[in-house]
Design a protein around this nucleic acid. Structure first.
Lengths: 343, 343
DNA sequence: CTAACCTGGGAAAGAGTTTTCCCACAAGTC
DNA sequence: GACTTGTGGGAAAACTCTTTCCCAGGTTAG
């Protein structure tokens, strides 16, 4: 009663073969087993409702069917889109996805990485901006290497520079191209709703935008840059601050769509019409946010595919060479939230 | 080299004690261990970087630290909000969340449930509408019971009638109250963008709305009901269909926010102004969709807390009695997408 | 002073797989 | 007919941990 499990040994007995033979049938080993016995074992397994004990398998094989997925916040549509791509691939492969949310805490990240290591996870997909903090970065690298030592594989999304396969959106180019489109529209004075300075994604987008402005001979004034924390409310607050201080910009670039959403809300609250009085652009093309009014000009990233590709790279068994990097280009989508500036 | 792991035995040797003693120290058993040895063992574990092998523990204890979370689609903000609540609780408890996405396939649901069983998951949180299909329902119940037989615990969100603890939003009352508000605004002719008929959530919301209309002596005409599939695009298409066929309704109720979003997009495409020509209301108050224009009238559900509560119930060890049900009331939020009908 | 009782610690038996090693037997070779 | 070769099957070790059982030594009570 206490143990309502069917073990492989029971299956073997029921089929009248040895434990080893049963195992060989169940997970198709290299060794041949006669068709007769094979059928007998399969029939017994079916009849008894055999379900292999995953922890015993993991222990014996020293590798589990778990794939870790670490994101900052699963409720953030940026991450949930990527997560969907990851789960699509892992589930297709019959693997199990372990979801860990770090909420930008390197502490939690470490804990989760250790847990995944303890579970002998087969692979880990790391999503989200890498911090520029030296210390936590080297620690992260050490942990990744420890995991790889154990035979685990790692792939990252948006975290260039780690010793692992990487899916890397070209934030710099995307932002620069967006800037050029906006300049072409006639804008000359820009405000930027930047992200946390220590996150590479935020910095790359800022840099890319900035460099395109410079190339066009446009100055970006210091007081026209405010920082948000990549959340909707952060974007809202930072935009209010910008408005309170006053700005002569004709176009506001928020480095991600989620903050752009907050910005548009703040502008509406302040009675500023978008795009008539101020153009607004974002980055990511978050699917859930495509129905905002006015429709947001942005740079589309194929988030779901990025997650899928990362999972795929992390699980490719044949590849054993150098770490690979897949660069992903964004596509500028000019929509309703931007127009040529009023004279 | 092959095995770069530190085992408990190595820790024990390093500390000069037996394996059993080391284990007693590490996971604070009932048996006492002298302070001296205790410190020695802990120091050794620290020094060697001991990390317990989770699968060995699972095998020995016949219970893992895994908590399953089954949703239809992690990119759907309804589910990702709930998922956030679930992970908050599980991670707080030092447990590991396993994410499975079923995409409304009972086949995948079964597979995932079996996998979780094979891993000796400690608990499972099941999220999403229960199907009304008799056959898949009884199978689901059998699988849940099999899991419980093994000592696993189950909690559901929005799936009343299963042999498990349940967090149950009062869809009927919420929809009815919303209907009363809309009637009070002056609406008499309604169109409904209903959900898949076989999902309880969709049905309850439809029923609740309908019963409030009946109570007010308002007929709901058959041609004013269309069905979507709970997705944005489904809402879009169904609304187009509704418009093509023509409707005399002054208010459109979509049974969830995601479909309401698609409906608003379709109406805009058709040049129909919301709310001036047609009022629109949704259900859920999805956080990511709060910035739509016009702001959507809806029924707020505390999605994140619902997930958290479900996880909490699933993990409460002391509770061993009857299955509990927590009812959650929605709150009607009248916003910009509804107004009194034009005369 | 001895009997009963604690208490800390160690040996060993599982938990359910995988996998290696070896044996038995049949078939083919000279 | 003995010897090799090949093939299917079984015994047992290994994976790492938990936990029970038991023993030795010290403490207390009578």
């Amino acid at each position: 009663m206490s143990s309502s499990y069917v073990t492989l040994e029971q299956v073997a007995q029921h089929a009248g073969v040895s434990l080893a033979t049963a195992s060989r049938v169940i997970n198709g080993s290299t060794r041949q087993v006669s068709e007769r016995l094979r059928e007998k074992v399969n029939a017994s397994a079916e009849e008894l409702g055999y379900l292999a004990n995953a922890s015993a398998q993991t222990l014996a094989r020293n590798s589990s069917s778990l794939v870790g997925l670490l994101v900052h916040d699963i409720a953030d549509p940026y991450f949930s889109s990527i997560a969907r791509g990851v789960t699509r691939h892992t589930e297709e492969q019959g693997l199990v996805t372990v979801l860990g949310t770090t909420h930008r805490s390197t502490q939690k990240e470490s804990t989760l990485l250790a847990t995944l290591r303890a579970h002998r996870a087969k692979a880990i997909v790391l999503v989200g901006s890498r911090s520029t903090d030296e210390e936590s970065n080297t620690r992260l690298i050490r942990e990744i290497e420890a995991f790889q030592q154990q035979g685990g594989r790692v792939a990252c999304v948006s975290q260039p520079g780690l010793p692992a396969d990487t899916v890397n959106p070209d934030n710099h180019t995307g932002a620069a191209e967006l800037a050029r489109h906006l300049i072409a529209l006639g804008h000359r004075r820009f405000a930027i709703l930047a992200g946390p300075t220590n996150l590479s994604t935020a910095r790359e987008r800022l840099d890319g935008f900035h460099s395109a402005l410079s190339a066009a001979g446009i100055e970006l004034e210091h007081h026209n840059i405010v920082h948000g924390d990549f959340t909707r409310d952060g974007g809202f607050e930072s935009t209010r601050r910008l408005m309170r201080l006053g700005t002569d910009a004709t176009c506001l670039f928020a480095v991600n769509d989620v903050m752009a959403t907050g910005a548009m809300a703040a502008l509406r609250d302040s009675g500023i019409r978008v795009p008539q009085e101020l153009s607004v652009a974002g980055f990511d093309d978050i699917p859930t946010l495509r129905d905002l009014t006015p429709a947001l000009t942005t740079v589309r990233l194929p988030l779901e595919q990025m997650g899928e590709r990362a999972a795929q790279m992390a699980l490719e068994t044949d590849h054993e060479g150098q770490d690979r990097t897949v660069n992903v280009q964004g596509e500028v989508l000019m929509r309703e939230s931007t127009q040529r500036p009023a004279l």
